[in-house]
């Protein structure tokens, strides 16, 4: 710069130097911070309902698989117990039909 100052004044060059602005570099994690601030702003304006939370939970593959497995196992257990009870009842009715005719009950 000292050398520049020592050069004979060039009005055009001086004008260009004055107009030139050094753009500073972006701060670290600039883009992430911008998105975070956008999300925060949206969150304050539109509160998330419990239904949205539930829907987002349901759409998670891990949760969906766990729920389906639970339903399947629950159905199998309940069906087996009910089936066993019904079979036992049928067997009881068969025995009664063989020893105690309807006409005398």
């Amino acid at each position: 710069m000292k050398e520049n100052n020592q050069l004979p004044a060039d009005p055009q060059f001086s004008a260009l130097l004055r107009e030139a602005r050094v753009s500073p570099g972006l701060p670290p994690r600039f883009q992430q911070n911008v998105w975070r601030r956008i999300e925060d702003a949206e969150a304050t304006t539109k509160p998330v309902s419990w239904l949205d939370v539930l829907a987002s939970l349901v759409l998670r593959p891990r949760f969906a698989v766990a729920a389906a497995t639970l339903m399947l196992l629950g159905g199998v257990v309940a069906g087996t117990l009910e089936g066993r009870q019904m079979a036992q009842h049928d067997a009881q009715m068969n025995y009664l039909a063989s020893v105690a005719p309807e006409s005398v009950r």
């Binding site: 089936g83 067997a91 068969n94």
Partner: peptide, 27 residues
């Protein structure tokens, strides 16, 4: 899923338990 597995299991158990059962098996 629950209804499907429930009815399938119930039917299978009934078929399995009543097969080869005579009048006295209940006793």
């Amino acid at each position: 899923i629950f209804a499907g597995s429930y009815f399938t299991a119930r039917h299978a158990t009934m078929v399995c338990c009543t097969r080869s059962a005579d009048d006295l098996s209940w006793l």
